[in-house]
Design a protein around this nucleic acid. Sequence first.
DNA 1: ATATTTATTGAGACTCATTATCAATAATAC
DNA 2: GTATTATTGATAATGAGTCTCAATAAATAT
Lengths: 170, 170
Amino acid sequence: MSLNKYRFAMDEIQKFREYIREKGLRNTPERELIIEEIFSNHDHFDAEGLFLRLRNKMKRVSKASVYRTIPLLIECGLIKEVYFEDGHLHYEHIYGHRHHCHLRCICCGSVVEFADDRIPRLQNQIGKKHDFLVTSHRFEILGYCSECAPGQGMQGTCRPSGRGHAGNQG
Amino acid sequence: MSLNKYRFAMDEIQKFREYIREKGLRNTPERELIIEEIFSNHDHFDAEGLFLRLRNKMKRVSKASVYRTIPLLIECGLIKEVYFEDGHLHYEHIYGHRHHCHLRCICCGSVVEFADDRIPRLQNQIGKKHDFLVTSHRFEILGYCSECAPGQGMQGTCRPSGRGHAGNQG
DNA sequence: ATATTTATTGAGACTCATTATCAATAATAC
DNA sequence: GTATTATTGATAATGAGTCTCAATAAATAT
Ligand SMILES: [Zn+2]
Ligand SMILES: [Zn+2]
Ligand SMILES: [Zn+2]
Ligand SMILES: [Zn+2]
């Protein structure tokens, strides 16, 4: 179980080690701890949360190192930024994950991923129409999840904050 | 010309004045200056840029007032937030503007607006499939505009910065 | 008009996410 | 092992955005 836990992240960790070496950088225990933690599950994450997860497991890594490692992981194609509107950046794994978009509850913040073949088609048609060389798209659908849908049941769980709001971002 | 310049913003300005009054707030010269500046064109804008535009025209309004007026304009349905990934919020007019999405150049930051009937259909189908009560969507297509397309002509105009990058956001 | 009430203003303090600095440390190469 | 130099952690700095508060000025009543 504990052994298996990190088994599936071996590809990512290996890819990172190679990237570091190719770039003439150095593999360090801090970086190992950070990527092990990131790839110990498939969830979206943010820098602060990642830092706290490490800290709670007594893996002492400075916040600065967490912030410094994230761009390396982006550069080597293991993660990418996702934009929720809660005022700070979130990230998700991309290595071994097919491209997808997000459905997000504006009440509790929960996120559901979806993929649809029609989206890249649409993207390309629209790009061509406006003379753009399209490289990517971001499609986010906002609304209420079944738990939060107004009219029925509990909608009192909503806790909007400052700008946008956070929530259990799966 | 100068008279005409603000003619088309009369609806917006009037709507704002009424909203302020209905809410028991007060119309002030500062607020007038801010909304006149915002609706003096149809462009996207951000708080800092708006503040500087006012300042350059010798319309002295504090940054705090700029930041305080924006939420009022959102509440009364005149503008809304748009999310570009350059680390701060942008806004656009919605009163009298049909819903649209953005095509954005990752090189120079230029923005083209587009609308497509298939998008709301897609949004609703996907929402239904995942048991979400959909309220809105955000679809952004990223790529290179014709000026910046790699391979031909000038791509040296790219000036990426910190996180994402700014540019001439039309 | 004048007074009263209270929303608004501007300046600056503050927050929070993120980035930069820098001396001490520790990977790698020789 | 020694030299080189990337990395670390602590902390300062930044920058967008918010909050505070005393002074000001709309709206309204007198
Ligand atoms: Zn929900
Ligand atoms: Zn995702
Ligand atoms: Zn361009
Ligand atoms: Zn727009």
